[in-house]
Simulated scan of single mutants.
Amino acid sequence: MDRPALGSTSAKQEIIDLSRQKWQWMAEKNVDALENLFHENAEFVHMGGSWGKERELKVIESGGIWYKNAEIHDTSVNIMGETAILLNRITLLAEVGGNEVTNPFEVTEVYVRQNEDWKLASLSFTRLQTSEED
């Protein structure tokens, strides 16, 4: 098989690259690409609540939350079997309900290997108390 060994540096880089691509797709409101990336049973946790895949796609498509830019400061990946946990410390520029906001977050992304593809199973935002000075 051509896929990187789970837990290897190249598998971790694959997850990092996929996460960065996800932020781009979210900024572009590319729900077709995100539909394919998000696991059918994915869960999304935001400051204002939590919901599943279909609602997240609708929120992105409608611009209810427009993820304009995620400035990534730190990233780590831990792979356990067919599951990868990625942590990003970011400053997120978003438009929420028509208002532009910037918040520092620790974002937890959980990916699961499904057949040959990684699927995003969970995306959770934890707002940090201090602003980023990077």
Rank of each mutant, 00 (worst) to 15 (best):
F125P: 01
T83E: 05
A33W: 08
N69D: 07
P4W: 02
G52T: 08
H73Q: 11
E43D: 14
L87H: 06
V45F: 13
E35V: 09
D117N: 06
A11H: 07
D32T: 11
A121N: 04
I90R: 00
E28N: 15
G81D: 07
V77M: 02
K119W: 03
Q129P: 15
A70G: 13
L18E: 04
I85H: 05
I65D: 04
L128A: 09
G64Q: 08
V96L: 10
L93N: 14
N78E: 14
L123R: 08
S19C: 12
I15M: 03
L87G: 00
E40N: 09
A42P: 01
F38V: 01
N99D: 13
G52M: 06
K53H: 10
Y111L: 07
Y111W: 01
G81S: 12
E106H: 08
M80Q: 11
V96W: 01
N115Q: 10
I72V: 15
F125L: 09
F44N: 00
N78F: 12
Q114L: 10
P104H: 07
P4R: 02
L93K: 04
S76L: 11
V101H: 06
E106M: 15
S122N: 08
V45A: 06
Y67Q: 03
T83D: 05
T91P: 00
D134R: 11
N30Y: 10
H39C: 04
K12C: 08
G64T: 06
F44W: 13
E82Q: 10
E132Q: 14
L123G: 03
L86C: 14
H39A: 09
R127D: 03
T130F: 15
M26L: 10
T9P: 09
L120C: 05
I60V: 14
V101G: 07
N36P: 00
L87T: 12
L92S: 03
H73L: 15
L93V: 13
V77I: 08
A121D: 03
N88R: 05
E56L: 03
G97L: 04
E56G: 00
E43K: 14
N88E: 09
A27N: 07
V77P: 00
D134M: 10
I16A: 02
G48I: 08
F125D: 03
S10I: 02
N99C: 06
Y111I: 06
F44R: 04
L92K: 03
I79R: 00
A5K: 13
S50T: 12
L37Q: 00
A121C: 08
P4V: 03
K58I: 09
T75E: 08
T83L: 04
S131N: 14
A84Q: 00
V110S: 05
A27L: 06
W25V: 01
F125G: 01
L57E: 00
E109G: 05
T102Q: 14
N78I: 14
S76T: 14
E132G: 09
K68A: 12
I15W: 04
K53E: 03
S122M: 12
V107K: 02
L57G: 02
I90S: 11
S131P: 15
Q21T: 15
G63F: 04
S124E: 11
L18R: 02
W118M: 06
K29Q: 12
G52P: 02
